[in-house]
Nucleic acid binder design. Structure first.
Lengths: 140, 140
DNA sequence: GCTTTTCCTACTTAACAGATAGGCTATATT
DNA sequence: AATATAGCCTATCTGTTAAGTAGGAAAAGC
């Protein structure tokens, strides 16, 4: 029931891009340094975000990454689901729900569904902008 | 972000004991058969529940297991946390919270906390009795 | 004393997390 | 045109965990 470093780092990465946005591309190396994360590992993670069009990349000197959209346009759920895969607690409540023969008459399914909805209720309402605002409130 | 078979089977196991309770011990082999789970694996799982005092064991012929308390006295959270360990999405929101140097000024922490509370809000309110009732409602 | 059932421990297999490593490609600057 | 800088891509490694399998010891009812 854990969120892996992939998802957590992706979130901090996006937050870092949002916090440090000055219109010019931000180097992954700088993000890695600020966040205390291996830059090579971050490269792999941002590649996922890049392919999904969440960030824009600029190659060469003075290159780096920029958010494609405004912070309020990204929810934590978007970022986590992209990097983590589904956030569902069990396979049978996922979207592509491969049908389980026990499903009919399975009450634990109802519980998993409640958990899934509770988690979604949080991550789908918290945006990157909220995180930025919280960060600023912390006097940073 | 998944709940493993240990936790899921434990829940089905407890539910099976609750549903089939007639005052006499229930053999693990019968539960395994009804639930379609390896009995050897279930043995290991019920051993956890037994050591925690959630079930009472009776050895020898006519032996088996019984719930120690009434179904309404067990929450899904108790059973899942016992078998899964913490349900927290990240280590830093767990009870024993080994302090993270980044914690002060960490906004993702606030998100993890919200997720944690949302999950707890579900599993700590749903009891084994609820599951039994739901099961009966399903006409089974 | 035999059978049934729980109890206990060790082992196996596969998958995944969490990186590390190294070279290739694009491009801004000189 | 050359060079340095940054992203891009793929392979590899290591340790841990999930999910079971296996086999026998110990208790207790008949």
């Amino acid at each position: 029931m854990k969120i892996s470093t992939r998802g957590r780092y992706a979130l901090r990465l996006m937050l870092d891009l949002a916090m440090n946005d000055e219109g010019t591309p931000i180097r992954i190396k700088d993000v890695a340094e600020r966040q205390g994360i291996s830059d090579k590992y971050l490269e792999q993670i941002i590649s996922i975000l890049n392919k999904a069009g969440y960030v824009k990349s600029v190659r060469g000197p003075q290159g780096g990454y920029l958010l494609r959209k405004k912070p309020e346009d990204y929810t934590a759920g978007m970022i986590l689901r992209l990097t983590e895969g589904s956030l569902a607690p069990v396979a049978c409540v996922e979207e592509d729900a491969a049908d389980c023969e026990r499903q009919k008459g399975c009450v634990t399914y109802l519980l998993w569904k409640k958990i899934n909805e509770a988690v979604s209720g949080v991550v789908d309402t918290v945006t990157l902008k909220d995180l930025v605002d919280w960060q600023k409130d912390l006097g940073n």
